Simulated scan of single mutants.
Amino acid sequence: MAGGSGATGWLAGYTALITGGGSGIGRAVAHRFVAEGASVAIYGRDPEALSKAVADSPDPDRTHAIEGDVRDSERLHEAVAETVDRFGGLDTLVANAGIWDYQRQLTRLTGAELAATFDELFAVNVKGYLLAAEAAWRELVKTRGSIVMTLSNASFYVNGGGPVYTASKHACLGLMRELAYELAPKVRVNGVACGGMNTDLRGPAALALDGRSISASFARKKPDSPPPAIPLHDSSTDPADFTGSYVLLASREQSGPVTGQAISVDGGIGVRGFATPAGGDHL
């Protein structure tokens, strides 16, 4: 597709649509894709964040903002059409928009809070991915393109969030695998299972956490704080350092035979030793 005159890199000539592209890992992936030669449409709810992401892009002319909510199927279809109209096609969908439950445990939520949080968080984290894929698959078939989903260490392990977030990310892992089957052989579907990073990840409005950002947790850390319980405990928390796997999976030339796979970019959680054996000792 139209990648801009003189664009070079692993994604030269590609076009991508990234949901949740105005901040955090979505913004970092958008900027990395542009640096790799792609034209990118970023989709999100915050017009100011979208405008800033475009202005800060390595090439603003190849970066286009579209305001919308991932829970809105009609708007997602419009976003796909707008991306194709502007850049000539669609090669990659990055399903990325999400919210976190701030590790609110089952025993610390009322039934009403749990129900409302589940409905909101699953609507964004799971239904948002499914609706984005439904809006994009026809164009991706035309280009033999791909979908890359932002997963999480919580797609495989416990306590990366509370029960609602963990369940949502396990669901996204299953969704990625199912769509990899359903869309083969025309469209590859993969995921990047990210670990903790310094990103503007928000919480559900149902718990009055929609104005809170996970980045504040990183900002409060002191130089002498104990390291995170991961083998690569001195690794970066900058979202830009998590973007390489997205480039790899988006590139036909680099990962053409790869589908239904999740690349873990989490500092090695799967090979760490034992820590606290139970999470309910306070009960």
Rank of each mutant, 00 (worst) to 15 (best):
Q105N: 10
H64T: 07
D210Y: 02
V164L: 14
E78Q: 14
P277Q: 14
R27Q: 13
R202I: 09
R138E: 15
T19Y: 01
P163H: 12
G161Q: 02
S51Y: 00
I147D: 08
S146W: 02
C194Q: 04
T243W: 09
G273P: 08
G244E: 12
R252M: 11
N153Q: 15
G44I: 05
T117M: 00
R32S: 11
D234R: 15
R75G: 11
S235D: 13
G111M: 08
G270W: 12
E67G: 10
G88C: 11
D224G: 14
A65V: 10
V40S: 02
A135H: 06
G9A: 03
L130D: 07
M197K: 05
S51I: 00
P227C: 12
D266M: 07
A35P: 08
D59A: 06
G174E: 01
L201F: 04
G256D: 11
A240H: 13
L173G: 06
K169E: 04
L11E: 06
S152K: 01
L248W: 14
A30I: 07
P223C: 08
N96W: 02
A35N: 02
C194G: 09
H64D: 09
P227K: 13
K142C: 02
G88W: 04
L140N: 07
A205C: 08
V158R: 13
A49C: 11
K222G: 14
G20W: 00
Y14K: 10
G145T: 04
D238Y: 05
A216Y: 11
M197T: 02
G21S: 01
E120A: 08
R32Y: 01
P227Q: 08
R71G: 12
A132T: 05
G6I: 09
E178W: 13
D61Y: 01
Y246P: 11
G273K: 08
P277W: 11
A30G: 14
K52Y: 04
D91L: 01
R138I: 09
A53N: 03
L151A: 14
N153L: 15
D91E: 12
A135G: 02
A208C: 13
L109C: 11
G88H: 11
V265R: 00
Y129G: 00
L106T: 15
R75F: 07
A38W: 00
T107I: 14
I99W: 02
T259F: 08
L11G: 06
A240S: 13
G9W: 04
N153F: 15
G6D: 10
A49H: 09
F274N: 13
R272Y: 04
P227Y: 06
H170E: 09
Y14P: 05
S51L: 05
S217C: 12
